[in-house]
Structures are given as C-alpha cells and as structure tokens.
C-alpha cells in the first residue's frame, strides 16, 4: 500500500508530518511489517532534545529490537501514551493513532528527507 503523501520519510523508516511549529513523528507501515507484532516502545520524556540521525528510542517486537532515529532536531513536546500503554496500536495504525512523539522544531529542512513517492520507490512499496 502506498505511503501517505502528506509527510516526509527517512531511509531508516521514520516519518514526520509538519504541523506548523512542530512535527509528528512515527514509523512506517513497511517498518512495522518488518518488525511484526510490537511489544514495547521506549520513548523520550517531554523536554528531551532530539538530534538528526541520533537514536532517540527503541522499539521491540516479538521478533526483533530496533532503534529509532531522529529525522529532525528539536525538543519533545508530546508523547503518545496510547502506544506506550498498548504497543499494538503501532501495528494497527502506524500513520495516525500509532504516532510516537511530537517535536518542536525550527524550520524543517526537508531536502534530506524523502517524499512518499521517493520512499515507496526506494523500498519497492506499492
């Protein structure tokens, strides 16, 4: 299934959705399918600073443990408690209910990120 076109993507399978001063951040359907059933997610506390390309959390599934990498610089302003309480939310709806954190950023440089079309082409998603 094609990825939503209203956001940007990383090679490490995170997505961001621009929301004015802040971005919503999550992982892609492709990533979720590779992980299989998610059993645990460790997310930074509100106020924590994210640095582009650096690990900011971990996600565990029945089959694997993976690190989450920051697609943007900024400070965490909101954490999705729903996914901490029920990690399967990420499997069910990675793009809406399964978002991970909201990050307050300056102007986001999207030139290093991929569009949905670029991401889908790179990982043969259709």
């Amino acid at each position: 299934m094609a990825s939503p076109t209203d956001r940007f993507y990383t090679e490490t399978h995170e997505w961001i959705k621009l929301q004015g001063e802040r971005v919503l951040l999550g992982i892609t359907r492709f990533a979720v399918d590779e992980l299989t059933d998610v059993t645990f997610v460790e997310l930074p506390a509100i106020g924590k600073t994210l640095t582009v390309g650096k690990a900011f959390g971990e996600i565990e599934s029945v089959k694997a443990t993976s690190e989450l990498y920051a697609p943007v610089d900024g400070a965490v302003v909101e954490v999705n408690d729903a996914v901490k309480n029920d990690p399967s939310t990420i499997n069910q709806d990675p793009y809406e209910a399964g978002w991970l954190v909201a990050v307050k950023t300056g102007p986001v440089d999207t030139s290093k990120l991929m569009s949905a079309a670029q991401y889908d082409a790179k990982f043969n998603i259709h």
């Binding site: 490490t12 995170e14 992980l35 694997a64 443990t65 989450l68 990498y69």
Partner: peptide, 9 residues
C-alpha cells in the same frame, strides 16, 4: 529504525 543484526541473524 535499525534492527540489531545479531538476534535477527
């Protein structure tokens, strides 16, 4: 997101 190679392999 990057998986830990060892456990998967």
């Amino acid at each position: 997101m990057t998986s830990y190679a060892k456990s998967l392999e």
